[in-house]
Write a protein that binds this DNA or RNA. Sequence first.
DNA 1: CACCTCATTGCAAACGTTTGCAGAAAAGAG
DNA 2: CTCTTTTCTGCAAACGTTTGCAATGAGGTG
Lengths: 339, 339
Amino acid sequence: MRSSQVTIKDIAKHLGISASTVSRALKDHPDISEETKRMVKDLAAKLKYQPNALALSLKNSKSNTIGVIIPEVVHYFFSQVISGIEDVAYNAGYTVVICQSNERYVREVANTKALLAQRVDGVLVSISKETQDLEHLHNVEDHNIPMVFFDRRCSDIEADSVLIDDFNAAYQATKHLLKLGRKRIAHLGGPMHMDIGRLRKEGYMQALKDFDVEVDEALIFEANTFEDAPGCVQKMMQYKNPPDSLFAVNDLTAIGAIQAIQNMGLKIPEDISVVGFSDGRFSNIINPKLTSVDQHGYEMGRKATEILIKRIKEDQREYDPVTEIIPGTLIVRDSSVNR
Amino acid sequence: MRSSQVTIKDIAKHLGISASTVSRALKDHPDISEETKRMVKDLAAKLKYQPNALALSLKNSKSNTIGVIIPEVVHYFFSQVISGIEDVAYNAGYTVVICQSNERYVREVANTKALLAQRVDGVLVSISKETQDLEHLHNVEDHNIPMVFFDRRCSDIEADSVLIDDFNAAYQATKHLLKLGRKRIAHLGGPMHMDIGRLRKEGYMQALKDFDVEVDEALIFEANTFEDAPGCVQKMMQYKNPPDSLFAVNDLTAIGAIQAIQNMGLKIPEDISVVGFSDGRFSNIINPKLTSVDQHGYEMGRKATEILIKRIKEDQREYDPVTEIIPGTLIVRDSSVNR
DNA sequence: CACCTCATTGCAAACGTTTGCAGAAAAGAG
DNA sequence: CTCTTTTCTGCAAACGTTTGCAATGAGGTG
């Protein structure tokens, strides 16, 4: 016995006029007399009439909704992205439907299906780590629904994407250490099969090369968690030529390293300078404050949504996908200093 | 020229049969012959037919969608809640529409309106800090749409709610310090006009009373940010009878205090023990690890959604609202110790 | 052969809106 | 007073589905 939702028909019946007249009156159609308009509007207000968006969407075959498929909401970076998406969408009059894949392929497929069924006008996707088969995304293409990738792209699919310039940000971070006079720069990096790990390492190496500093593989580890870091640090500090600084693939790893270093009685940033990457949430609350790269998640969300809405409005079947690169910003804090 | 969405009618036309037959065939209605079923299903698969959820919702006047109004996605706690909501909703076949109020009243009102227009089947709300006027929420009630409050309730509205037991969690946190032999326990608390600030302070005071420790107003501050904390600490440490421990209304404030204390050359936990509250994200990465209260955001999201879906299914106009209290869990780490 | 029973299919209405077109009434023109 | 114009309103179809009911035809029964 739910509903009790007022419709245009109800208003029409109460007033003894037709639904079409009510519809026109509500949107100030010039054909309708002022008197009728007033009557209709007054009653609509009184009954708290809310237009049924579903009926509208069905009629116009557009739902004013955009779907988001995102790995995990609880990641600070992703929640920032969502925030950016939400803001732009809200201002453009779109509703946002958020689906988490939880990094699971099957769930990503299910989400895609649900969004398609919902007839979303466009989709924002950051694919899960598991995703290999792309049929579900081709499906979206086939249905001619604009799609924009953010953060994680799918190179086999022709679609717009908004990405972080991992290579360059890592380059800048490393360069910053080099300019401080550091020469033995360790790197705690991510797995090579992920863009994020590969590109950041490449940026790091390129900077070394450009500054004529030899790359020492003994200073490079695959370690990208808070827990991984201490082991690497302990190992390195036993070298006869230990590192004088460290660039980590993310902030948590950097923090793990910092604490390990401090526990060995060394001073940060004097003895060892440390630079992290992204997240940003922790950088200010640890001691010393962490020099790090801001990934601009909010901005990424905004950008991706703007592109998507543009595509929706253009309404063209074919277009040349753009790839927008958002530069990371190195924020120098207290964990790095001249030697 | 979008669309290219296949409909039941298209299938019907291709096969030279009626839409009703197609509809029935797709859902294995016993009236339809096996042969027809096969034909229909094959073609549906080939054309990648996706039922139009909008049409369905319109027909059934239920959208299988639940709306969420949440202050800010980027708060770790809230993003945990969303995660819980998403999981339960997904498993029950519901789509989740998320709206951020950004703690702004006007936006909350707009969100409510949008969700109403979308004909969501139910709403999960955590009201913004600004919200005083409740007309928009009464509106939801009037439309007979089930609503569940989480984390922040609205006592003027009769609805289910899921809350944290702030009082008791604060009581436990304080008791923990008392049992460690601490007697001069400072409290950095939130504003009194918010439940969260008031209840946690009351829990703190009750614990002191139960342990026959005198409440000293000089040890109680309204300070609930990382930046607020150091000032209070410096002030208190000049007392002739300074605190031996501290209970903060949230983790960031606790961390701000810890750093201020450490900067004064004092040792944590020996000289001063510290307990925080919630967030959890930081507790493990600072040094020493922070004793704190886990607020169980994910659990809260699950619980609220379960109740909501139950209400939706019951489909009763009148019911007695329940209030579910989720106990906070004190997690003892390294920042508190026997004196 | 008339009648009944199944099995299978189609018709039409409904959900809430919008909109082109036609219709009616009022007003203006001659 | 008739004809034309203007002003206002209503009809009906459409968006994609579902579903009660009617219709069709085949086969069975007496």
